[in-house]
Design a protein around this nucleic acid. Structure first.
Lengths: 107, 107
DNA sequence: ACACGATGTAAGTCATAACTTACCGTTAGT
DNA sequence: ACTAACGGTAAGTTATGACTTACATCGTGT
């Protein structure tokens, strides 16, 4: 039941914001912390939690720790969510994909 | 940002179990509470939270309150999750990474 | 070798939320 | 009308976790 872990980890707003920042690509800690309303150590702690949950991975680059997103960490949560729909599932999936394409087009 | 609310609400294991029980169809409170490791009032409180989050709806049937699932309450969370995949994402990712390299260079 | 910048970790504080018990109102049956 | 079942709400307790500051560590450049 890793989806439970993912839910718990992403429930915190600050931690979620850190996670979302990684959508923009891999980033070092100080960059992730910049502008957030909490201290840098707080961000480090959030990153540890995210990493333990498999939502994020870390690599060293000199003195920096570069964190990046692990989409696989979201898979179970995704499947759990999808399991709430029945046949209507495929219809929604298609529609979602379509609206995505639209958004992309008018960028 | 209702997906934040959904995440927070579903993060609690007990509350999530109550929510999941509703997959089997509408049920009265005492049935939802049966077998759970918490008291019946606790379940009532969880149901209130679920209802306030739009994840559940309630109808009266005599002295019973019948709760049922509201899938629409999961929509935003679902879309947020899906937004982590897709071509638009990769495009954005590349661009972000590029601008990051630039910033790093002229430090 | 030294100093600085980047980051993880320890320890302690504090707010919150999940639970409990006790109580209340409401409906159904006799 | 009385009683019992259903379930919401109040009040209080307690564990947890998100944060802070202080410190330790490890690379980099001079």
């Amino acid at each position: 039941m890793a989806y439970g872990t993912a839910l718990a980890v992403l429930a915190d707003p600050t931690r979620r914001k850190v996670f979302e920042r990684l959508r923009g690509g891999p980033r070092p800690v100080n960059l992730l912390a910049r502008g957030l309303p909490v201290s840098r150590p707080a961000v480090s702690q959030h990153l540890k939690v995210l990493k333990d949950a498999g939502l994020v991975e870390e690599r060293s680059e000199g003195v920096r720790r570069i964190y990046s997103l692990r989409r696989e960490g979201l898979m179970e949560l995704r499947e759990w969510l999808e399991s709430f729909w029945g046949d209507a599932l495929d219809a929604f999936k298609l529609e979602a994909e379509r609206s995505y394409r639209l958004k992309k087009r008018d960028k």
